[in-house]
Design a protein around this nucleic acid. Structure first.
Lengths: 335, 335
DNA sequence: TTGTATGCGTTATCAT
DNA sequence: ATGATAACGCATACAA
């Protein structure tokens, strides 16, 4: 495989000149440039990215650590991050952490190894107790929940406000016994807790009692667990007329479970989700949900990371960005 | 940031010894090893992957070029590829090609630049005419359709056989006017053409006429286009009692469109898809479909690539792997 | 405008 | 069991 030296020799110039041509630098005579380009083509020259990386101290690649790209929300996010990174000429290498704390910490290590110029980390397994693991000297942006006030930039969803709005929407449509289907409420800062908190606020604001029996915690935020739970709720004779699901995935399971139990949506029970995944508009009934503007969040995360990557000297203060949201009203709430 | 030299100095050994410790090589005295490890910990040493890559001539990263990770099938595939690559200690960098031919060719170039040790390429925009672009001297595996008999390994779905099986299933359930909803039939080797071909075979095998009016080509394989088309088919009074959708995404759109038109599935029309995406089991009605074993295909693609990466000397003959499939019968075909 | 010399951090080879 | 040396391919100061 031809190197820059080989090209230089073939073109009768120095390696420096080839490098200049390669990087589109000025001060290269057209004739020289032409000779170099010709030699490069003839030898089928390809830059060696590893060598360039070593020399420049940067790799042109950022890492994105998410639980799994195949989950609707994270897939959406990954696509948006890759697109946003592309606008900065950065490639994206994806680590799947399986939502495991250890794997999230491992992603931090890889980044620290200068494998990546920076890391966007979706913390799901890590918690507030792991804040000190983020005390690193290279760019990291947290995208998601569970770690607040840490030493790095943070892009978060408007979890509480959007959940309150979703719940309020159900109340406005006449629901008086609104259930919430979430994951385990581990601590104060995980997705389920934050969204559950918004749900509570909305109920309180509407003067409705908070019945603990209406809070349904799933072992995992999967369609399967959600469908089972919905069927169980009906089998147990639980009295409810509205359901706020903390993700669209959960909502899809709930819709299926209610259908199994012969419950009509929205006539008997109204359902709303969170995420506005592509499928939600095409379900039968179509799913009302919260749209958190994933593209904007990905864009902000990449922009913050790029800013850190370019910065020399003393670090700037951490930034916290909370995205906007909008309510998408569809058939499942009688819209 | 500490280098291997710094550690060597701190531990009172040579850089080579540090390298030996780092790579778990034998012939290092326990006491020496301990001193080195202590120094590494004290200086918070991290290997510089770029330097290692340059020296070794490999990057430990493979590229995966797909249209978009957010599409159900490709997301599933990406997740499986990342997992399979992880078993070989390889990272995966994802290129989104948007199904554009130029971007698929660009991914080949990046790989050629030794940015990746190898590339798994989902060809969607490229076609048989681009075969010569694959005449490269580094490992490439094609995962998908559109290029057959090329100069590289190829992992493909059992498109024709599985589509025939799906169509046959509809016929066995009593359908006599079976429609197919596909994309544009561009040439003989794209997904739609292959699956349409299986559909034709099954009809012929069942002694049913092939009515051109039952072949519905969409401008894009999206839920939206599929839903519109389903509504249009009903509005036009098209006579059909079964639909084979070339992807589950299309099927989801069709289910929605039929619901809009007040058509009951499976009572009036039976529907079957292709891919067995996670959502298909939870739709109302749940979707019958073809399961192509994505994990196995990803596994094979990675294995073939790794084999090429490790090989020296004359290249082995190209391998073609066609995966297995199974039919998943659910409510949408009355299962 | 072009060339020379040097170093980025690591590891393979060979020597001790 | 450990060390000295060189080289991977490129880009940057600096010189010409």
């Amino acid at each position: 495989m031809a190197t820059i030296q080989d090209v230089a020799k073939a073109a009768g110039v120095s390696a420096m000149t080839v490098s200049n041509v390669l990087n589109d630098r000025p001060h290269v005579r057209p004739a020289t440039r032409a000779r170099v380009l010709e030699a490069m083509a003839r030898l089928d020259y390809r830059v060696n990215v590893a060598a360039r990386n070593l020399r420049k101290g940067r790799t042109g690649t950022i890492g994105l650590a998410v639980p799994e790209v195949n989950r609707p929300y994270y897939g959406r996010l990954a696509a948006a991050v890759i697109t946003a990174a592309g606008r900065h000429s950065l490639r994206v290498s994806i680590e799947q952490t399986g939502a495991r704390r250890e794997d999230e910490l491992a992603a931090l290590t890889l980044s620290r190894n200068r494998l990546y110029d920076g890391l966007i980390l979706s913390t799901v397994g890590m918690g507030q107790a792991d804040v000190e693991a983020l005390e690193v000297d290279h760019p990291v942006v947290i995208l998601g929940e569970r770690i607040f006030g840490g030493p790095v930039d943070h892009v978060a969803m408007p979890n509480v406000a959007a959940s309150a709005a979703a719940t309020r929407h159900l109340v406005e449509r006449g629901c008086r016994r609104v259930a919430v289907i979430c994951g385990e409420l581990r601590d104060e800062v995980d997705v389920s807790s934050l969204r559950h908190s918004g749900y509570r606020q909305a109920l309180a604001g509407a003067g409705l009692a908070a019945d603990p029996g209406l809070v349904q915690s799933l072992p995992a935020l999967t369609m399967d667990a959600a469908a089972r739970r919905a069927r169980a709720m009906m089998a147990e004779g639980l009295d409810f007329d509205g359901v706020f699901c903390v993700t669209d995935t959960v909502a899809m399971g709930v819709l299926r479970g209610l259908a199994d139990a012969g419950v009509r949506v929205p006539e008997q029970v109204r359902v709303i989700g969170f995420d506005n995944v592509d499928e939600s508009a095409f379900l039968v009934p179509s799913l009302s949900t919260v749209d958190p503007d994933h593209d904007l969040m990905a864009e902000r995360a990449v922009t913050l990371l790029v800013a850190r990557m370019g910065r020399e000297g003393p670090p700037a203060a951490q930034e916290e960005f909370v995205g906007p949201f909008s309510l998408v009203v569809r058939e499942s709430t009688g819209g």
